[in-house]
Design a protein around this nucleic acid. Structure first.
Length: 286
DNA sequence: GAGAGTGTTGTAAC
DNA sequence: GGTTACAACACTCT
């Protein structure tokens, strides 16, 4: 699934393309993908202007004009938000994005058509994702469940360290806990642990202050780097233009079980931690 | 062809 | 309460 860097990549792409556009038509072909009242969703969105797009953890929030509210979207495992330029351009042009042709697909469950002919497709093969229309209070409630954003000043070491110290479970399980730090998923947790040279299966409370500091510092470094590369495509991730992310080539451990460690050559171990596939180097990570 | 595994997270059970 | 297992679903890999 899209983790923080992938969702941020989508946010930036969409912000550049749909801000200020008015939704002319909304199609919902899989009603369960809309949380709450589906009829309200279609009625309120139709004619609405998208005035802002923000991200909190892995959740995107589209602000609508005239206090219509917000659309919250979580892509979960296989969700995609793909923007397509209008097909009715003068001259039959279809300059962007060529990779997005073929849409809608059988996984396009919610579609926004804008006044200018451009389209936003919410695709989700496994149908775990959702869109929800909420008011200000609903948005606040949804966002309040998350811990600090790791790329902001809200992410503080002492707070992070004390949370680790209170948990006996594996470090990886704690890093996946969105109330401890927002936005990490399976891929980046493994990469962060490798960068910090700490084994993901270590009990969180067993980390020394120095080890916790290394993990704390690796988090924003890895995430920023991944954003700079446009995210990671391991299987399904596509950005707003339908393109794959380029961070996959930079992965040091995730998806490399059985292969050699880039640091020391040792065969990387693949294990299960917290029901999740986990790869690490038993030589480099202690 | 059967069974396990896949990037998330909410919920139920212990 | 903390922790663990699993379901929601569709596809790929073994």
């Amino acid at each position: 699934m899209p983790e923080l860097p992938e969702v941020e990549t989508i946010r930036r792409g969409l912000a550049a393309r749909i801000l200020g556009k008015r939704i002319a038509l909304v199609e919902v072909t899989k009603p369960k993908m809309v949380r709450g009242n589906g009829r309200d969703f279609v009625e309120v969105l139709t004619g609405a202007l998208v005035v802002d797009i923000t991200r909190r953890a892995k959740l995107l929030s589209f602000e609508l004009d005239e206090s219509r509210g917000y659309v919250l979207t979580h892509l979960k495992m296989t969700g995609q938000l793909i923007y397509e330029e209008g097909r009715n351009l003068v001259g039959g042009g279809h300059p962007f994005p060529t990779v997005a042709q073929g849409l809608p697909s059988k996984y396009s469950h919610i579609i926004w058509k804008f006044e200018d002919g451009s389209v936003l497709y919410f695709n989700d093969m496994r149908q775990f994702g959702f869109m929800a229309l909420v008011d200000e209070a609903g948005r606040e409630a949804a966002l309040a469940r998350y811990g600090p954003e790791p790329l902001t000043d809200d992410f503080l070491f002492d707070d992070f360290y004390s949370k680790l110290k209170r948990r006996s479970v594996a470090l990886k399980v704690v890093l996946l806990d969105q109330s401890v730090v927002a936005g990490l998923g399976n891929i980046y947790v493994d990469e962060v642990c490798f960068a910090a040279k700490v084994a993901p299966g270590r009990s969180a409370k067993s980390l020394t202050r120095r080890e916790a500091r290394a993990v704390f510092e690796a988090i924003p470094i890895i995430l920023e780097l991944a954003i700079a590369f446009g995210g990671t495509t391991f299987r399904n991730f596509r950005d707003d233009s339908g393109a794959k992310g380029n961070f996959s080539s930079q992965l040091k451990v995730y998806g490399r079980g059985g292969q050699g460690c880039v640091q020391c050559g040792e065969t990387l171990r693949k294990v299960k931690i917290g029901q999740r596939g986990t790869v690490y180097c038993m030589v480099c990570q202690k």
